[in-house]
Write a protein that binds this DNA or RNA. Structure first.
Length: 702
DNA sequence: CCTACATGCATCCGA
DNA sequence: CGGATGCATGTAGGT
């Protein structure tokens, strides 16, 4: 998948700002359309966004049901089910941002507690739906239509809620079931208790309530608000006749229904988005994107569940992911490669493609989702998806939970209310249509990258094409700053980044290293985060978590991690060739048809110097051994030694390969020896940030 | 036993 | 003859 496609849509998400539920953009349009064949909302009725002064239904404290899966955007979720869904999960509106700010300290974005239907925002004069009905004179008696009268249940809610709260660690399923159960009973009971509607409109509403009891709870009704002006306007427009009121009622109910449906789907989508890796083409490997060895510095708030759900408070322009988050030799496809794109894509995928009836698991009883969301933020934690969303500093961090997906999965798997939405026939159909369209969109963009099956050729452009093609599926994109950093001394450090190994046997061992803030060494390459080279089969399994959070760091490039290699003696020797991990090479680098391989240029991330290398393979035991040749200069320039590692990325924007060497050193005197080993030859001292790096003069072979 | 990879080493080639 | 090149072999880890 092409990340760029994905994030292009960023920014749209609906806000969850507090209590609003606004449908935005396409979503709103769709909704309008839905609601509107009779469209009275056209002119006078502001688009839905203006319509409700929403108070996200069941989010009130009196909500009888458990919180729904964290939904970053309960509201935006609604939009996610529509065409604009494309980015809700990763984006956030200002509202969200502010919201996020409020909850920042918790790192976990929790739905703001909504004690009661939120007060009208912006001074908008709102009225509850029920009130609206009264206003419309749809009901004669306030008593009859008093929500509390209608929906009151025999089960005192507080106790229920409390008990749920106390058991929020129990399976979500339980919640949903309870919720569903309660809601149903609620209405049924009320049906028996409530006085019969007095007139046609009343009957209409009553019938509607009955038929939607599963989706719309009393709380929902209570909490949905409409802008008074809007109602009045509509009312005026439709006339004060019974017909007019009837029509208005229909529209409102339809909207409510629609809104609820969307919300519900959104919730489902949100929850589904939490299990991106369950998607078919996704990473089958449960390995998290996050580094198994998170370091405090590396923990990216964005990786926190809720952050995912509640878009982090920063623009999602750059998707920074840490390739180094792979556990062992994982490739991006199967090894748990961290993939923002992947994640994002998947999120979208799941959010959009699941048909309403696609399965019990995605469905939440009306209101349940939201309630859960609000009440069990902790649950969000478990459903966290490592998104690779850059944290505040724009750096990628490591998720703390190595296996978030598993949690998420089990969580989701417990929901089951599938068939319910089916009842909303036309709505469901519409949703399906939207999803189809979204799918199609994705498919197209996806396809663009698959179209050309690369052919062997030495043209960089083609190389990149190939990259795209391969990476396309799900590589994370890494934002890397330009190689402008300078050391404390003010000199450009041509070399690789330094990584500090607290352990005496650093390189080549499996000790868990501590990241070294290059602040001192000041490696120029400002890679957001390097994934410690981890080799699956090699004796030297190392992990480092070099996170370089630096002030002033500005993501400039979107890089996709392709592979890394811990350098062996033979890699840094004078042979000038580096054996590349087979699996990653085959997966992420251009497919090689001939032993000679292809010429490949690698831009040194740190110095911008361009190195002309050759990517090739050797036949070996019925297999192949992949090599990167002409690496001698690069290695020397970066002062790389055995135990250090290289990381190869592809620059999504510029369509080129990027490479960087990361030095690993041990504390102590020994490390000193290693350190300045850098460029002692004509190396890349030349290349500076200007990117005009000279090409490493390729040895004989080019 | 298989696979991937590190590296040994035979061969080739140019000086 | 020395370095480059390419293949073969040894070995560790996985199955």
């Amino acid at each position: 998948m092409k990340g760029s496609d994905e994030h292009a849509g960023a920014g749209g998400g609906g806000g969850i700002g507090g209590d609003e539920i606004w449908l935005e953009g396409n979503a709103e349009e769709d909704l309008l359309v839905d609601v509107n064949d009779s469209s009275i909302f056209y002119s006078d009725f502001p688009p839905l966004p203006d319509f409700p002064c929403m108070s996200s239904s069941s989010s009130s404290s009196s909500a009888p049901a458990p919180a729904p899966p964290p939904k970053p955007v309960a509201s935006s979720a609604s939009s996610s089910s529509s065409s604009s869904a494309a980015s809700w999960a990763l984006l956030k509106s200002d509202a969200e941002e502010s919201y996020a700010d409020k909850n920042r300290d918790q790192q976990v974005a929790v739905a703001p507690p909504l004690p009661v239907p939120a007060p009208p925002e912006d001074g908008i004069d709102c009225m509850e739906v029920m009130e609206t009905f009264g206003y419309m004179e749809l009901m004669d008696s306030n008593e009859i239509w008093d929500p509390s009268s209608i929906f009151q249940t025999d089960n005192p809610q507080p106790p229920h809620e409390e008990s749920l709260l106390h058991h929020h660690h129990q399976q979500q399923q339980q919640y949903h079931q309870n919720d569903n159960y309660l809601l149903q009973n609620e209405v049924v009971q009320e049906q028996q208790k409530a006085p019969a509607p007095v007139d046609e409109l009343g009957t209409m509403f009553f019938e509607w309530l009955k038929s939607n009891k599963e989706y719309i709870s009393a709380e929902d009704m209570r909490n949905i608000k409409l802008r008074r002006a809007t109602v009045e306007s509509a009312s005026k427009r439709l006339g004060s006749t019974k017909e007019g009121r009837k029509q208005l009622l229909k529209l409102i109910l339809e909207w409510v229904e629609n809104y609820q449906l969307q919300k519900k789907q959104a919730a489902a989508g949100a929850s589904s988005s939490q299990f991106p890796f369950q998607e078919p083409f996704q990473n089958p490997n449960p390995n998290p994107n996050c580094n198994p060895i998170p370091s405090p510095d590396n923990i990216n708030p964005c990786f926190l569940p809720s952050t995912w759900l509640h878009p982090a408070p920063q623009p999602q322009q750059q998707y920074v992911a840490d390739p180094t988050g792979f556990p062992y030799g994982g490739d991006l496809y199967t090894g748990g490669g961290p993939s923002n794109y992947q994640t994002e894509y998947q999120t979208l995928e799941t959010a959009q493609t699941w048909p309403p009836s696609s399965g019990p698991q995605q469905q939440y009883p009306m209101g349940a989702a939201q309630i859960q969301f609000n009440q069990f933020p902790e649950a969000n934690t478990n459903s966290n998806v490592v998104t690779g969303i850059p944290n505040q500093q724009g750096f990628v961090g490591y998720g703390g939970n190595p296996y978030p997906y598993q949690h998420q999965y089990s969580y989701q798997g417990n929901n089951n209310n599938g068939e319910k939405l089916v009842r909303l026939g036309s709505l469901a159909t519409k949703e399906a249509r939207k999803k189809r369209m979204a799918r199609q969109k994705r498919f197209l963009s996806h396809h663009r990258h698959h179209q050309h099956h690369q052919h062997h050729n030495h043209n960089q452009q083609n190389q990149l094409q190939m990259i795209s093609q391969k990476v396309d599926h799900n590589h994370q994109v890494i934002s890397i700053g330009g190689g402008e950093s300078r050391s404390a001394a003010g000199q450009v450090n041509p070399g690789a980044n330094w990584v500090y190994w607290p352990n005496a046997n650093a390189a080549g061992t499996s000790s868990v290293p501590v990241v070294v803030p290059p602040a001192v060494e000041a490696p120029p390459p400002q890679v957001v985060a390097d994934r410690p080279p981890v080799q699956g089969q090699n004796t030297s399994q190392q992990r480092q978590v070099p996170t370089e959070k630096r002030q002033g760091w500005k993501p400039e490039k979107n890089l996709k991690f392709l592979l890394q290699k811990v350098l062996k003696q033979s890699d840094v020797g004078n042979l000038g060739r580096i054996v590349l991990p087979k699996k990653e090479a085959e997966t992420h680098l251009p497919e090689l048809e001939a032993r000679d391989g292809i010429a490949i240029t690698m831009e040194d991330i740190g110095t911008s110097q361009v190195w002309n290398m050759r990517y090739r393979f050797w036949p070996n035991n019925k297999s192949r051994m992949y090599l990167l040749e002409n690496t001698g200069d690069f290695v020397r320039a970066n002062g790389l030694q055995e135990g250090d590692f290289i990381v190869i990325y592809s620059d999504v924007k510029c369509a080129k390969y990027m490479i960087r060497g990361v030095k690993v050193r041990q504390p102590g005197p020994k490390s000193e020896a290693k350190k300045p080993a850098k460029s002692h030859r004509r190396s890349c001292t030349a290349a500076q940030a200007d990117g005009s790096g000279s090409s490493s003069q390729p040895s004989r072979r080019e």
